[in-house]
């Protein structure tokens, strides 16, 4: 019986991990390509979920419309996350690139992104308060039972969906022209400029991808767990950072593996040692990795070591 329970936990862990995957990939793209630890990512995630909830509950503000269909609401939520991400690009990354020639200097974008984190988080808190809100979707209870195991179909679809998106992204980075340009920028922004890559036009693509990944992930969370809250980003954000480090900074496939590992260690840790032990397990694992194998499972050596 124990074995089966543990197996059920493993399934749950993988499902939970699927939420972390997209957000971890968003973090890893920002670090890998722009050398930018983007702390707005949790806020973008939360923004998509809360905007989606707000639309499905109240519709467009000032009574311009009735409550919006949940799927459409979440779609708008994702768009909002992308727009917010572009806003961050405009006022952190691009601005410092213009002013200092090197946007990664002095941790300026990092600090600025912490500022945006506060802005987005507290806009939502001011507008909607701090309560957790129920989010009802068409998929209320679709569980698939095989041999005593419960697999939620939306969760399974989400996992597959996350991996597909990330896999597609990975192919895009490898094959397409934009992907090559992005990797050139990751390698050396100055050289990329000299080689004729229009950095100012390519960089926003990274931020669009970041917003998109956060939005998708939030939508998947809302569909699967039927709730959103202004603090949903904090929880996922810290876990996604852990996932990114475990997978290795800058590695897309590493972020997938890291997301699943974090999800697994979280659920198993809760199962064996109680609810609040997950924090120690996940972060302990991460600290050990940082110290003894800072490149993570699949990371490159050079990323993120520049001084502040």
């Amino acid at each position: 019986m124990l074995f089966e329970q543990v197996l059920q936990q493993i399934i749950n862990g993988l499902m939970l991990g699927s939420i972390y995957i997209s957000v971890a990939v968003a973090f890893t793209l920002a670090i890998g390509i722009l050398n930018f630890l983007n702390f707005t990512i949790p806020a973008l995630y939360m923004l998509a979920g809360m905007v989606g909830w707000s639309l499905s509950q109240y519709g467009v503000p000032f009574g311009l419309s009735g409550p919006v269909n949940w799927a459409f609401a979440l779609f708008i939520g994702i768009i909002c996350a992308i727009l917010a991400s572009l806003l961050v690009e405009r006022f952190t990354y691009r601005y410092f690139k213009m002013k200092h020639g090197d946007a990664t200097e002095h941790a300026i974008p990092l600090v600025s992104s912490l500022g945006f984190l506060l802005i987005f988080e507290y806009i939502i808190l001011i507008a909607h308060g701090s309560d957790t809100r129920g989010f009802s979707t068409a998929f209320s209870n679709l569980d698939w039972r095989i041999g005593g195991f419960i697999i939620s179909i939306p969760q399974l679809l989400s996992l597959v969906f996350s991996i597909l998106i990330v896999a597609g992204l990975s192919v895009l980075l490898k094959r397409s022209k934009v992907g090559r340009a992005l990797r050139a920028i990751a390698e050396n922004p100055d050289a990329a400029t000299i080689m004729g890559i229009d950095v100012d036009r390519i960089v926003p693509i990274v931020f669009i991808l970041i917003g998109f990944l956060c939005g998708i992930s939030a939508a998947i969370f809302a569909i699967n767990y039927h709730e959103v809250s202004p603090y949903m980003g904090d929880h996922v954000g810290t876990k996604a950072i852990a996932a990114m480090v475990i997978g290795g900074l800058g590695s897309v496939w590493g972020a997938i593996a890291g997301g699943l590992i974090v999800g697994l260690s979280e659920t198993l840790s809760i199962y064996f040692f109680g609810a609040s032990s997950a924090q120690i397990t996940v972060w302990g694992l991460l600290l050990l990795l940082l110290v003894f194998r800072p490149t993570g499972l699949f990371g490159h050596n050079a990323i993120g070591k520049g001084k502040f």
């Binding site: 630890l37 900074l249 940082l290 993120g304 070591k305 502040f308």
Partner: peptide
């Protein structure tokens, strides 16, 4: 170093 140090202290 760098980002890793930020993350390690956070951890």
């Amino acid at each position: 170093k760098g980002v890793y140090m930020v993350l390690a202290t956070f951890a």
